[in-house]
């Protein structure tokens, strides 16, 4: 789990570094970033309500603030916002948000606002990368930092799968089907990307996804 959380954190750091160092967000999907902010805000509503550990609270805070930062850069920064590929980033996010919400309203562990929003965030996270993957496919020369960002982000839920297997074996009664199935789907969505990422990495070439 620690490795999963760290790759998640690194992915965000890599993206912030890329944007800040190159003053460019080309190849980065604003739609995916906005979906992630929605995921973090709806999942971490309990930040001030239930306390698990200082570690958890800090990470929640970092995830919300950093994704807000990235969105701020992409929308408001004089130089960076000019480099956003708005014409290419056309994924219809309503097709991800509404089905996730409806599914959360129907399939959840407890019928309460907080629980439904939490479940919604789990469902939405599993598909939030899709606009970014579509944009990558449309981008001819994907820069290394952007592809590293997506690779790290994909590795994160993959490592969580190992964490869940471990916890399932060591903790009595540890079951969370909603999270597991969504996590499996989330990792599966990256399979195709992983294949081309590792292929280009082995050949020492820039990544370009076939259309």
């Amino acid at each position: 789990r620690e490795a999963g959380d760290m790759t998640h954190l690194f992915s965000i750091i890599v993206l912030l570094l890329k944007i800040n160092a190159t003053k460019s967000c080309s190849g980065v999907s604003l739609k995916t970033q906005e979906l992630y902010l929605l995921v973090f805000v709806t999942r971490y509503l309990d930040l001030f309500q239930s306390y698990i550990s200082l570690y958890n609270s800090c990470m929640k805070f970092i995830f919300i603030v950093s994704s807000g930062c990235i969105i701020g850069y992409m929308r408001k920064h004089k130089v960076v916002s000019q480099t956003y590929d708005a014409e290419q980033d056309t994924f219809r996010v309503a097709f991800l948000v509404w089905p996730s919400f409806l599914l959360a309203a129907v399939i959840n562990q407890k019928l309460s606002v907080m629980e439904i929003l939490w479940t919604f965030s789990i469902y939405l996270e599993s598909v939030a990368i899709l606009p970014q993957l579509v944009l990558l496919q449309r981008t001819k020369n994907v820069d290394n930092l952007t592809s590293n960002y997506v690779f790290l982000l994909g590795s994160y839920r993959g490592l969580y799968l190992l964490n869940w297997i471990y916890r399932c074996l060591t903790e009595e009664g540890y079951r969370q089907w909603i999270v597991w199935i969504s996590g499996l789907l989330q990792t599966a969505i990256y399979c195709d990307f992983f294949y081309y990422y590792l292929k280009s990495w082995r050949k020492n070439e820039r990544l370009s996804l076939p259309s």
């Binding site: 789990r1 998640h8 698990i52 958890n56 929640k60 995830f63 964490n163 999270v179």
Partner: peptide, 10 residues
Amino acid sequence: RRKSWDHDEL
């Protein structure tokens, strides 16, 4: 009833 591990991941 909330289980001890519920929502304890990120």
